[in-house]
């Protein structure tokens, strides 16, 4: 059964907590004025940001279809595994404009990040203030490309890749499969 459902209060709190800690602000609340959070169960419970104008239509669609036929609605925000919420890579296009706390890489660094390498970042001054908690990483074109974490090693800031847009190629069949 993977019919879409509204998130419980506890689930909503878990989502907000993690996103607020990534953004280091409460701006996510403003996004929720335009979207509803819905979940759909596939091999994991996926959480979607659904534009409010979609709601009457999907309620009509729901009447006509079986529970397992609605696969995806709007943009994916993330997913739950064992009651723990993980931010999905697709959500970064929604979240990045809500925060100044992001690291913009140069062209060479963008390539290294997308190859999953850890490396010493060029902008050491800015990076030092973002240490030890996940941060949105943007390409030289200012397009969000993943989430990383900055660690200090012998007084130099290193960026470690946590997740990146390469998932669209590497994990197409696993991350985007449907059913259990």
């Amino acid at each position: 059964m993977n019919s879409f459902k509204i998130l419980s209060d506890d689930e909503k709190n878990l989502v907000k907590e993690l996103i607020n800690s990534l953004l280091q602000n409460n701006e996510f609340e403003s996004l929720l004025e335009q979207f509803q959070l819905l979940k759909i169960e596939h091999h994991r419970i996926e959480v979607y940001l659904v534009p409010l104008e979609f709601i009457p239509l999907i309620n009509l669609i729901k009447i006509h279809l079986k529970d397992n036929q609605i696969i995806q609605i709007g943009g994916k925000l993330g997913f739950f595994i064992n009651e723990r919420f993980f931010i999905g890579i697709e959500s970064l296009s929604y979240l990045t404009p809500l925060t100044d706390r992001k690291l913009i890489l140069n062209s060479q660094e963008t390539t290294k990040f997308l190859y999953g390498e850890s490396f010493a970042v060029a902008d050491q001054d800015k990076s030092i203030s973002y240490l030890n908690s996940p941060i949105i990483i943007c390409s030289d074109q200012h397009i969000p490309i993943g989430i990383g974490i900055l660690k200090l090693k012998e007084k130099i800031c290193f960026l470690k890749n946590l997740v990146d847009v390469g998932i669209y190629l590497r994990s197409e069949k696993s991350a985007f499969r449907i059913g259990k």
Partner: peptide
């Protein structure tokens, strides 16, 4: 074929889509 559909629209930043697993011949909305 649905994983490729989902991966492509995610990669391309498409946000206005509802994906249905359905044979269109049986569509009766």
């Amino acid at each position: 074929r649905i994983p490729a559909l989902r991966a492509n629209i995610s990669r391309l930043g498409v946000k206005n889509t509802i994906i249905l697993f359905l044979d269109s011949m049986k569509l009766s909305f």
